[in-house]
Design a protein around this nucleic acid. Sequence first.
DNA 1: CGAAAAGTTGATCTACATCAACGTGCGTGG
DNA 2: CCACGCACGTTGATGTAGATCAACTTTTCG
Lengths: 265, 265
Amino acid sequence: MTRQSDSQHSPLIAHIQSAIDLSDRDLAALRSLETASETVPSGRSLVREGKAFERAYILKDGWAIRHKDLSDGRRQILDFVLPGDFVGIEGSVQRRADHSVTTLTEVQMSPFPFDRVENLIREHPRLITALVWLGTRQRAIFAERLVSLGRRSAQERVAHLLVEIWRRLKIRGLSADRSFRMPVTQAVLADALGLSVVHVNRSLRQLTRAGLVEKGRETVSISDLTGLLEVAGFEGAYLNDGPAPDELVQFLERTRANRAATKQA
Amino acid sequence: MTRQSDSQHSPLIAHIQSAIDLSDRDLAALRSLETASETVPSGRSLVREGKAFERAYILKDGWAIRHKDLSDGRRQILDFVLPGDFVGIEGSVQRRADHSVTTLTEVQMSPFPFDRVENLIREHPRLITALVWLGTRQRAIFAERLVSLGRRSAQERVAHLLVEIWRRLKIRGLSADRSFRMPVTQAVLADALGLSVVHVNRSLRQLTRAGLVEKGRETVSISDLTGLLEVAGFEGAYLNDGPAPDELVQFLERTRANRAATKQA
DNA sequence: CGAAAAGTTGATCTACATCAACGTGCGTGG
DNA sequence: CCACGCACGTTGATGTAGATCAACTTTTCG
């Protein structure tokens, strides 16, 4: 289902190339950023809110979260960090981190110092576009999550998140079909969706009983994409760029036969 | 209370200079971006989600919102656009807008074409840092708002937003004391905070009755900053950068005498 | 000055939280 | 290699923050 540890494949490059045309030279320069590799165990903090950034990373394999913690123990997960994502690259323009990053699984990282970024864009000015674009993408994801937390029901939130993750992995070549690895407990989902664990569980069961998705311990499999998109209220192709109508839009265009089943299953 | 239409003063420059040191030449270049001026009435759409960007702007005066709308009428406001903010500058790396921007008041804008940005950074490479930093700031604001929508109570959300706006205006030289202009209806607040209008009203009244803030129709005045920060659960100085402990931190360090009064007023 | 927009307040409803108890897979150490 | 313990998942009962509905007041502005 997933291109697990194909050391040739770069999720980062796949991601960037989905939207931006870079020369082979520029791509090679980018790729050189991810040659180093370091293993970090699960549950380790890579960036700590309020502390100075130490170095930047590219996540090569495994999962992490961006999150903020309140002093009374409440926690909000802002985003999931997937293979191909940068971590802590804001350190090149900012002294202190405004959120934490913590690994959810054992992880393979390519660390690099900040001046590496400066040298890189000096020699490959076109890469600025790519880097800025990635920042913009991050903002778009935050924005969509704001809509979820502010205005969507529990079921909609869960459905929406699953579709979003699937799409992000797909663009990076990390899911060929409609299943993917997602080593995320319900407690973590709760903190990402602004819900209680219990309610996440119930929402998930509803979606499963309606025949839309199955979430195993480490894996997700979408059984009825059209139906899931319907529940998620997925609008447009916000994770995509460019003019071509993509698979998603086509799906949305099709019959809504499954709609009724999912409303109050 | 507010430096209203001092045509000399640039909120954009003030904002950037709060964190980044630029040469006079670079500053002059930035300033040249905002020489043009165009008046746009209230309620006009400057950027429309899903549509191509036409041009970029600097907001010179007035308020606007970034928002996303669902097909069933639900709306989530992502952020308020204040004087000194860029609008639509993502157009230089992205074809389509992932959210809309709409004016809340009559507004003064300086429009400029995207290639202007490219030329600018070609001649003033140091400005890249400033531009990237602004993008990062935007993300930090989204992040903090995610925490609000996901994990904070209604009262906390309202208090937090008011403090955040005050701080942002202050950094730009748009509020000298503890009052500021905020031409925002309760309905708009509701869509920003993920609440109903009725509940925004009640939360606001509670804060007022507790003697913390007064929100008039177009203006806000903080009567008890310490208390308001307390309710908001304001942690650290997320809108600031740099190592110096700032006014906020000092306030937080002080006595918490007012705490009890605000808990269940 | 009249009507629409904005704000206020009470009554009632509900989505989701909280509390509690129990099931289940699985990693670890004896 | 088995069993014990713990993290995770599941389900029911009950509580509550905030939504919704409804009516009324106040402000704004053409």
